[in-house]
């Protein structure tokens, strides 16, 4: 009975204007002081520590530092086996994308940002520049061939390149069509620095979309190696790391946590773990969305909404109030 009465009194206190003791509290003054303090701290941190700004990677840097990797990636774009070529929606139909059981959210929107890696990353850039005679001839041969023939040339050469450990100088003879010349031509173009500008704005003056550059660069090992060196990989808590010794997006810790679990980093080829790893992004996204909804709707979830009382941190926050009342009693 007393509990019910206390509960009712508590509810009354929480929902009506407070009639207990009050104290003077100047919110505006507090706000001005807070802004001044924050400004001083931010100016101090900025002046003494600066901020991270590692220069962006370039295709020129890639072709110069890792020429074979660039060359092999170009061949995989022509063969249609690169990550971009097999990605699926929203870029192309080379794959199905990630699924959550029978649900494929990735495919719902269809191909809204069309990307054809062989043409967009290799053929078109080569066509926009004046090329040596052998590259011009190779372009003519490629564009004059059927899609089946193109695929046969590129996949045959990719297999041979794989057998030679990715070293183009060690590849044996074979019917590779124009593929080696095209790959070599693009590598030369990238090393000269011309590819960076051409990929950004092929045939146009303005460019605000870097999707193709990001995808192409991500297909090779250059971007990946730089990320590993800076501990930015997903399984290195990379989502919340930053280059150098600076703090990154620490607030993504609840997201990043899941990528550290072995079940989402499995080397297995088949089975439950392999499936989870292949669809890690959507599975983790769903987990985080559910967790977020639970926290957001905490006020309405019996049991969970009483957690603060059980944890007891409120006794520290309101210790003066409780202590004052205890002494008065």
């Amino acid at each position: 009975m007393r509990d019910a009465s206390l509960r009712a009194a508590q509810h009354e206190l929480e929902t009506t204007h407070w009639r207990g003791p009050v104290r003077r509290y100047d919110i505006v003054k507090e706000g001005v002081i807070a802004f001044a303090v924050v400004a001083v701290v931010v100016v101090g941190l900025s002046s003494f520590l600066g901020s991270p700004d590692e220069p962006a990677l370039t295709f020129q840097g890639w072709a110069t530092a890792m020429p074979n990797d660039f060359y092999d990636t170009t061949v995989s774009e022509l063969a249609g086996t690169s990550e971009s070529a097999t990605y699926g929606p929203p870029y192309n139909d080379g794959g199905t994308g990630q699924t959550l059981g029978p649900i494929n959210l990735q495919a719902l929107a269809g191909i809204r940002i069309p990307v054809d890696p062989a043409n967009d990353f290799v053929i078109q850039p080569l066509q926009t520049q004046q090329q040596p005679a052998d590259v011009v001839a190779a372009l003519d041969q490629w564009t004059g061939a059927t899609a089946e023939q193109q695929s046969l040339w590129a996949s045959t050469y990719e297999t041979a390149l794989g057998a030679a450990d990715g070293d183009p100088t060690a590849v044996g003879d074979g019917d590779y069509g124009p593929v080696p010349v095209l790959a070599s031509g693009l590598e030369q173009m990238a090393a000269s620095g011309a590819l960076d500008g051409v990929l950004a704005a092929p045939g146009s003056f303005y460019s605000t979309d870097n999707t193709k550059q990001i995808l192409f660069m991500g297909d090779g090992g250059y971007l990946d190696a730089a990320a590993s060196a800076n501990e930015l990989q997903g399984n290195q808590w990379g989502m919340m790391n930053e280059t150098g010794a600076y703090p990154g997006q620490q607030w993504l810790a609840p997201f990043s946590f899941w990528y550290q679990l072995p079940i989402f980093n499995s080397e297995a080829d088949s089975g439950f773990a392999a499936n989870l790893t292949a669809n890690a992004d959507i599975v983790i996204m769903v987990i985080v969305v559910v967790f977020t909804l639970v926290v957001m709707l905490l006020p309405f979830i019996p049991g969970l909404r009483d957690l603060p009382r059980a944890i007891g941190l409120h006794r520290v926050i309101w210790r003066r109030y409780y202590a004052g009342a205890k002494e008065r009693a």
């Binding site: 991270p52 700004d53 590692e54 220069p55 962006a56 990677l57 929606p89 929203p90 994308g97 990630q98 959210l105 990735q106 719902l108 929107a109 269809g110 809204r112 940002i113 979309d209 870097n210 999707t211 990001i214 995808l215 660069m217 991500g218 971007l223 730089a226 990320a227 800076n230 930015l232 997903g234 990379g238 989502m239 930053e242 280059t243 669809n279 992004d281 959507i282 983790i284 996204m285």
Partner: peptide, 25 residues
């Protein structure tokens, strides 16, 4: 900068998987 390149390369996968990346690229 480099951080932007890597973050956009990585973030696109989660957004695409959720069906959001088609509009929020």
């Amino acid at each position: 900068n480099f951080d932007s390149q890597w973050i956009s390369f990585e973030a696109k996968d989660g957004l695409n998987a959720a069906g959001v990346g088609a509009w929020f690229n």
